[in-house]
């Protein structure tokens, strides 16, 4: 049986419907910042169609699992659903009037590579636009596409916040597009009144985006250049400042080293602790299954840099959670 994430969809729906009690991030400091926002005229949530979780990994007749109550719609947002059922629904798309599909991937394994390829083929044949943003807040389709219209009208996708700045102070931060979970409203609210001269990247954006909290995966993904969806989501929010602080978003992963070679950009210091903790968990999980492991094998089996892995191993040893015997790591 496969289980499917049910929480992210709840957050997206809560954000879209802008329920009064939906966001609780600011606690007692809530100023109902979301009350000035709402759905655009001409937009409508035609329906929420639910599939059960868990479901068998392999369905013999996926078509029998297509819910009978799918309403007519222009855009389908498929959040963490069984990929075989999704493919069946895409095949039936013309009967719903479907023009575009968004399949957000907050975690890389929400859909397999083969299902993604099949979905592309089905949609291409039917003339339907499809996107697999990973994570959802990296979703920025061309403005003149159906998907672009969807992002603009429903205000979800890669964050877009209009800042009004006077004397380097942000006097207003209006959200045009929010992360689908709604985090951007919270970030924008706390940007108002702050000075561009302060470290608002860390003190406002990272802080509030993180504590909202962002639920994108912390799994490193080769498709993201070895970054995690969580990191990409953070960068998308830092991009809010890019018209004002052009150095903020630097997407080039390679930098020139003092030795004249191109090397991976170093990880920002504030991420180190999080990465070390992630590496510690990975090491403990590995030892859970195999008792002991050589340093060489460990390096091959977990996707962390040698420096992060070494820090994790030192910390684990210091805490008495592992034992090292030469180059072999084991449980005490």
């Amino acid at each position: 049986l496969d289980t499917f994430d049910t929480l992210f969809a709840d957050r997206v729906i809560g954000n879209l419907l802008n329920r009064v009690d939906f966001c609780t991030a600011c606690g007692s400091e809530c100023i109902r910042c979301r009350k000035v926002y709402g759905m655009e005229p001409g937009t409508e949530l035609a329906g929420i169609v639910s599939l059960p979780s868990p479901m068998p990994h392999l369905l013999e007749r996926p078509v029998e699992h297509v819910p009978p109550d799918i309403p007519e719609h222009d855009v389908l947002l498929a959040i963490a659903v069984h990929e075989q059922v999704l493919l069946e629904i895409l095949k039936q798309a013309p009967s719903f009037g479907l023009r575009a599909v968004v399949v957000p991937l907050e975690t890389p394994d929400w859909i397999s590579e083969s299902a993604r390829a099949q979905a592309h083929i089905i949609c291409e044949d039917l003339g339907i636009e499809i996107a697999f943003p990973k994570p959802f807040c990296s979703f920025r389709p061309p403005a003149n596409s159906v998907l672009g219209e969807f992002r603009r009208l429903f205000h979800i996708g890669m964050p877009d916040v209009s800042l009004e700045v006077r004397d380097r102070t942000i006097t207003s931060a209006k959200v045009s597009v929010s992360a689908a979970c709604g985090a951007t409203y919270c970030v924008a609210r706390w940007l108002e009144g702050r000075s561009l001269s302060e470290n608002i990247e860390l003190e406002v954006i990272s802080r509030w985006w993180h504590s909202y909290p962002c639920t994108a995966s912390m799994e490193r993904d080769p498709e993201l250049g070895g970054e995690t969806p969580l990191h990409v989501a953070g960068q998308a929010h830092l991009g809010i400042l890019s018209p004002w602080k052009s150095h903020v978003v630097d997407e080039d992963p390679l930098v020139l080293s003092p030795l004249g070679t191109m090397v991976q950009r170093p990880i920002p210091p504030e991420e180190n602790r999080r990465n070390i903790e992630g590496a510690m968990r990975a090491v403990l999980a590995t030892l859970e299954t195999r008792g002991s492991i050589s340093l060489e094998d460990l390096r091959g089996s977990v996707a962390f840099s040698p420096a992060i892995l070494n820090m994790a191993l030192l910390t684990l040893k210091h805490q008495g959670l592992t034992r090292t015997d030469g180059m072999v790591i084991s449980r005490p």
Partner: peptide, 11 residues
């Protein structure tokens, strides 16, 4: 523009 959301719910 009409949007439909497909999601999973714990059964």
């Amino acid at each position: 523009m009409k949007l439909a959301i497909l999601r999973s719910v714990r059964s």
